[in-house]
Design a protein around this nucleic acid. Structure first.
Lengths: 107, 107
DNA sequence: CCATTCTGTTAGTTGACACTTACGTAAGTC
DNA sequence: GACTTACGTAAGTGTCAACTAACAGAATGG
């Protein structure tokens, strides 16, 4: 999980992921969308693959990549829980504040 | 926005953020929750502050930190949009696949 | 004042990371 | 079999990040 979060922190890797949300794409096609060299993209793809965010399928000389919706959903839930926990705490504090106000008024 | 995403990728910073979701805490109290030295936490706090995720208030010799719900919510929305875009694409593809199946059957 | 407390800041080190260039390799093409 | 295509991998570089140890500074208490 942690590797996936780190992988997503990099903007270029998010861009790559966006390219292969829906369709399978060979590494070269992915690389051609960016200004950096092909090996650089290849390394990004490895990071994404090791994080489980991307699947690789070989077809002759090409390697086709695609996002893995299950892992993506996991990361989404993980971070979602993080935010939600925070918001819940904040809500509780807001309610406590409200109670304090009411108690002050009552005296 | 990008700094905030990077800031959150670090597990220790997420822990710090969790500590000050609800209550204000002085730097020393925050540091005492961790095994690393106090300056290390101080630097993490600076990163969080520069990312706008944390507010700092001085009280005598102490500095009190607290999460900033507005910025936190922004990051949440940013990543939320990222996931949602992906899921939308996947949904579209699933529907397209469905259509293809139907068309095949019709012939 | 001086000492203490609570903190940020400043080197300085180590390691990770994004990148490039150069090379290696497997699958198709002539 | 040589050639090309489409890749990954290795090695090297510059930069950034996380950490420690040592110092600096503001507020408080005597």
């Amino acid at each position: 999980m942690e590797p996936a979060v780190k992988a997503i922190a990099e903007p270029r890797r998010r861009e790559i992921l966006r390219l292969i949300w829906t369709r399978e794409l060979p590494a070269g096609r992915i690389a051609s969308h960016f200004a950096v060299t092909r090996p650089a993209i290849s390394q990004h793809l490895r990071v994404l693959k090791e994080a489980g965010l991307v699947s690789e399928r070989r077809d002759g000389t090409r390697r086709l990549y695609r996002a893995r919706p299950d892992t993506v959903a996991e990361v989404r839930r993980f971070l979602g829980a993080f935010w939600d926990e925070g918001l819940q705490h904040l809500k509780q504090e807001a309610e406590a504040e409200e109670r304090r106000k009411r108690n002050r008024r009552r005296r």
